[in-house]
């Protein structure tokens, strides 16, 4: 029977692929701490901006892209757009951002392990240096409560 032959070949393929691949294992302590950090900081009283464009998702399908430049990400929520240019420096990232429309204030760059604040200039621009690789979330503040939070993205 043709179907059975195909099933046998499919089973052999899976057995063959499994040989070179790791078995799933539990999270490292660092991942657990990151998860707990995100849980502790989950309550954000602000609308959430979603990713509307990410150059990483446009380039080269699942094949490697050829010339790597900075990555560009655009997030939008509640009529505010946050445009990011992310470049890599070892395990740290530099994030150049622009908030449109501009409202000054500050941007808090949050990782699961802590947060740092950077000033937003009159034109809506900011520069965040030394951002650790991994998940980050940006909160726009002008005084007290944040007016917008981005969703978590990996940088």
């Amino acid at each position: 029977m043709r179907g059975r032959d195909e099933d046998e070949r499919a089973d052999l393929l899976i057995a063959e692929l499994r040989r070179g691949r790791p078995e799933a294992g539990p999270m490292s302590e660092r991942v657990v701490r990151a998860a707990d950090g995100a849980f502790a900081a989950r309550a954000v009283e602000a609308p959430v901006a979603e990713v509307v464009d990410d150059s990483l998702e446009r380039s080269g399908g699942v094949r490697p892209s050829t010339v790597p430049g900075p990555r560009y990400v655009v997030l939008r929520g509640s009529g505010v757009e946050v445009r990011l240019e992310i470049s890599e420096h070892g395990d740290e990232r530099r994030v150049l951002g622009r908030v449109v429309p501009s409202a000054g204030g500050a941007v808090e760059v949050r990782s699961p392990f802590g947060a740092r604040e950077f000033a937003v200039d009159g034109g809506g621009g900011f520069t965040a240096c030394g951002v650790p690789r991994g998940p980050v979330r940006l909160l726009l503040r002008d005084g007290g409560e944040p007016r917008l939070a981005t969703r978590w993205i990996t940088v």
Binding site: R30, A34, A35, R42, G134, R151, T154
Partner: peptide, 20 residues
């Protein structure tokens, strides 16, 4: 490696954000 750690962290961050 580290890339896998980053991806796993982001999944849990997204879940924490999504819970509400």
């Amino acid at each position: 490696g580290l890339d896998a750690e980053d991806a796993r962290q982001t999944v849990w961050c997204r879940l924490a954000e999504h819970l509400d």
